[in-house]
Each structure stands twice: as C-alpha cells, then as structure tokens.
C-alpha cells in the first residue's frame, strides 16, 4: 500500500496586483460620478445664492408672486413652474398609456418576428433630434390643433402641442424600459396564470403588469425627468415669455425654455438676469427631485415583488 504524499499547505497572503489595480480604478470611477454631481449642485447653489442675496429678491416674492421679469424687479417663479408642469403632464398623459400598451404588445402578444421589426422602429423615435420634434410640434401639430379647435381658441405657440409632441418623444423610452421590465417577469409566473385558465389579457394585466411595476416605475421616473428637462421642443413650440396660466391652449414659457432664451441673449456676469438663470435651474432640480421621490414612493407602495 502506498502512502499518499501531502503537499504542504502554504496559506500566506498573496498580493495580486491586477486585482488591486482594477479595484482602485472602479473605485475612482464611482467617486468621480459622485464628485461631478456634488460639483454641479455646488455651482448651481453658489450662483443661485447670488440671486437670492440681492436685496430686492425675497423668498416671499419668489414663491408668492406670479410674474417673472427679473430685469424689472418681478421675481415670481410660478409662471415658469406651472408651464413646465403642464407640458410635462400632457407629455406623460400621452407617453405612459401608449408606452405601456406598446410594451405589453411587444412583450406579451407580438411574435418574435414582429417584435424584431417593431422594436427598432420604435427606438428610432428616440434618436430624432429634439429640435426636429420642436418644429414638428410648431409646424405640424399646432396647425392640426388649430383646424380642430379654431384659430381663435388656441395660439400659435401653445403648451398643448409642445406637450403632445414631448409625449411622442418620451414614448420609446417608456415602452423600451417597460418592455424590459415585462420580459424580466419570470416565465413560470405566466405559466401559473395560464394554467389557472387565465386569458392572455388577464395574465398580462393582472399578473405580469403588477410584477413588473418596479421596472415601470423606473421608466416613469426617467420619463418625467426627461419631460421636465426637455428644452428644445418647448423653446420652439410652447412660447417665449413667462405667462401664468393653467390653460394649455395658451403660450407659456417653461423653466428650461426661459433659461435657453435668456442665456442666448447678451448677459453680463453677475447681473440679475444672469443669476436668475441659476435660481431657475435650482428650482428645476428641486421639482425633478420631488417628482422622483413621489414616483419612487408610489412604486414602493404598489409594487408586487416576485422573490
């Protein structure tokens, strides 16, 4: 009988330079993105502070009045905020149901062949420059709206047309992300539903959709952020000039539209017009943040988790 020769154990720590380097690189990448965000917020806050430090500007005026003309001492932010919210709301009203319907069709109903044709086409919509969408709104959608409603009832620049087209722009984002969320729902869950005698519609709407809700929530959050931050479409089609109104048929400038227009003009550093842009940007940041938090809360509240 032969005795087995045991190799001696050597369990000393080994230094693996490759691992260390990669780990450091990944760490730097992570820190960098955080640093960039912090720097952005810092710059934004610093310049916005200059605006609010102006003895003429008070928070009461900023939040309490409804006219925005910093050049002549009117500091009410609301007209810009309402038009941003209205155009974004209209956009989501279009993008969410259509996007979800398209996603459900693509993931649950379409044959693989149909899907392979439709999905890229839908994604082309996302690749169109937004300035093109802007003129599409102004020169195509607005005339249609005018012919439906009469020229007197809807102005050439209006929030409705900008919002509608913005919705079309966001649609592929919503549908593509939602489709991924639907496809990620495990197959056994669908089979379980079908085996209970569920129809395709019952399975899609009552089992797959609730299970995919957290992914859809992410799509909605991203969609809202895009709608609020979208500049070119509203700058071209929604109107230039703050206007405090809740009527989507009227022209009204959004926060982004105002920033784009004012910064395109002749601005001197430190002037009230200049610092006001940062105040708007900060407000934009806050609105987006609040809406993100709300949608996150809604998703947390209603999602149905599978494992």
């Amino acid at each position: 009988m032969s005795t087995k020769n045991f190799r001696p154990f050597n369990l000393k720590k080994t230094i693996r330079p490759g691992e260390t380097i990669i780990q450091s690189l990944l760490f730097v990448a992570g820190v960098l993105s955080i640093m960039i965000t912090i720097t952005l917020v810092y710059e934004l806050g610093k310049e916005a502070l200059l605006f609010f430090n102006n003895p003429d500007v008070t928070l009461a005026k900023f939040f309490g009045t409804t006219e925005w003309q910093p050049g002549i001492g009117k500091y009410g932010i609301w007209p810009l905020v309402t038009s941003t919210l209205i155009t974004s709301f209209i956009a989501m009203l279009i993008a969410l149901p259509l996007g979800l319907a398209a996603a459900l069709y693509l993931s649950e109903y379409a044959s693989p062949k149909v899907r392979s044709i439709l999905k890229p086409i839908l994604e082309i919509l996302a690749g169109i420059p937004t300035v093109v969408y802007g003129f599409f709104a102004l020169l195509f959608v607005t005339p249609i709206l005018q012919s439906i409603m009469g020229k007197d009832n809807i102005s050439v620049y209006n929030m409705l047309s900008a919002g509608l087209v913005m919705g079309i722009m966001i649609l592929p984002l919503i549908s593509s992300m939602s489709e991924d969320a639907f496809s990620a729902v495990p197959r056994p869950l669908r089979e379980g539903a079908y085996a209970m005698g569920a129809t395709k519609l019952e399975t899609s709407l009552q089992v797959v959709l609730p299970a995919a809700l957290s992914g859809i929530g992410a799509a909605v959050i991203l969609g809202i952020s895009r709608a609020i931050g979208e500049t070119m479409i509203v700058a071209v089609a929604a109107g230039s000039g703050p206007n405090f109104t809740l009527n989507p048929f009227e022209a009204a400038e959004t926060m982004t539209g105002n920033i784009a227009r004012i910064s395109g003009g002749d601005l001197s550093y430190g002037s009230i017009d200049y610092t006001s842009l940062f105040a708007i940007a900060l407000m934009l940041f806050l609105v987006t943040l609040v809406l993100n938090l709300i949608s996150q809360y809604v998703v947390q509240r209603f999602r149905e988790q599978y494992e």
């Binding site: 089979e191 085996a195 089992v207 609730p210």
Partner: peptide, 15 residues
C-alpha cells in the same frame, strides 16, 4: 385549462 389544473416543479405563487 380551467378544467385541467396544473402544479409546477418550482412553486410559482403570484406576487
């Protein structure tokens, strides 16, 4: 399928 039920290999309760 309403008359012929099925139980699967891995438990697949609905969420």
């Amino acid at each position: 399928r309403r008359r012929i039920g099925m139980v699967f290999q891995k438990p697949n309760p609905f969420p």
